[in-house]
Amino acid sequence: MHLETLLTYISLTIIGLLPIMNPPAAATVLLGLSKGREKNYIVSQAKTTGIYLFIALCLTFFIGASILELFSISIPSLRLGGGIIIVAIGFNMLFPRQESSSTSLGQDSIALVPLTIPSLCGPGSMAMIISLAAQIATNEDHVSMFSVYGGVVVGLGLVTLIANFTLTMAYPLLKALGQNGINAFTRIMGFLLICMGVQFFTLGIEEIVLEIHQLL
């Protein structure tokens, strides 16, 4: 195993993925959807999200491109779909519906959707990971391939740990802000999520337009 190659790809994975993933934004989604919940629920959702996230990132890295190709899904289409979902989540956070206490205190899970997909492992993260996998596949140095793939997987694991830690810090923030602070914070982050979703949507439109223009 080439230690230098291993460390290089660990660093590249973390540096390239963390800004796109934006764990604090996912933590705000967890806060917004956990109003009225106990600490155990929030912590359990954070831990479960960590498991789902690592699995989703590894699946995206190893077979993401094949899945998209199997269903004829392009990266722009992935951005469009993810943008629509993020806008819907942001809209619900900005204009929350009145729910009964029994519904509010239910045990439904939010770990897979929306925390893992599309908040953490969204269109941007998937596009970056699939691009990295495609670049690695062209590498002809088969001797160091184990170090390359090992570095990426370790990097994905470290990114997952950072995201998991960020989500677990949501409960102390919840206690510090109080219910009124959380309500205001949730609406602000809902608006920002809508902006992020629209950005994903417009990027997808731009990429589709460019693809059409290149075909003409």
Rank of each mutant, 00 (worst) to 15 (best):
I136C: 08
T60I: 03
A134F: 04
L94M: 13
P96L: 05
I136F: 07
A111D: 00
A65W: 11
L132G: 02
L57T: 04
S77H: 01
L80W: 08
I75E: 08
N92I: 10
L57K: 06
G157W: 13
I129Q: 11
T160I: 09
L59N: 06
V154T: 14
E140S: 07
Q107N: 15
I117G: 01
L59H: 09
V148G: 00
D141I: 00
L59W: 05
I110P: 01
M126G: 03
G90H: 10
I110G: 01
P118N: 10
F146T: 11
T138R: 09
S101M: 12
V113T: 13
E69D: 15
I73Y: 12
I73E: 10
S125E: 01
Q135S: 10
E140G: 06
P118L: 12
F61A: 05
G151N: 01
Q107S: 14
V113L: 08
H142R: 04
G90K: 07
M145K: 03
E69H: 04
Y52Q: 05
A133Q: 11
F54D: 01
Q98P: 05
F165A: 15
L94D: 12
I110N: 01
L70H: 09
R97T: 13
N139G: 00
L68W: 04
P123M: 09
F62D: 03
S119I: 12
V113C: 11
P76F: 10
A133L: 07
G90A: 11
I73C: 11
G83Y: 11
L156M: 15
V153R: 00
S77D: 06
R97Q: 12
G82S: 03
F146A: 14
E140R: 06
I51P: 02
D141E: 03
Q107M: 10
R97K: 15
T116Y: 02
Q98R: 15
G106R: 01
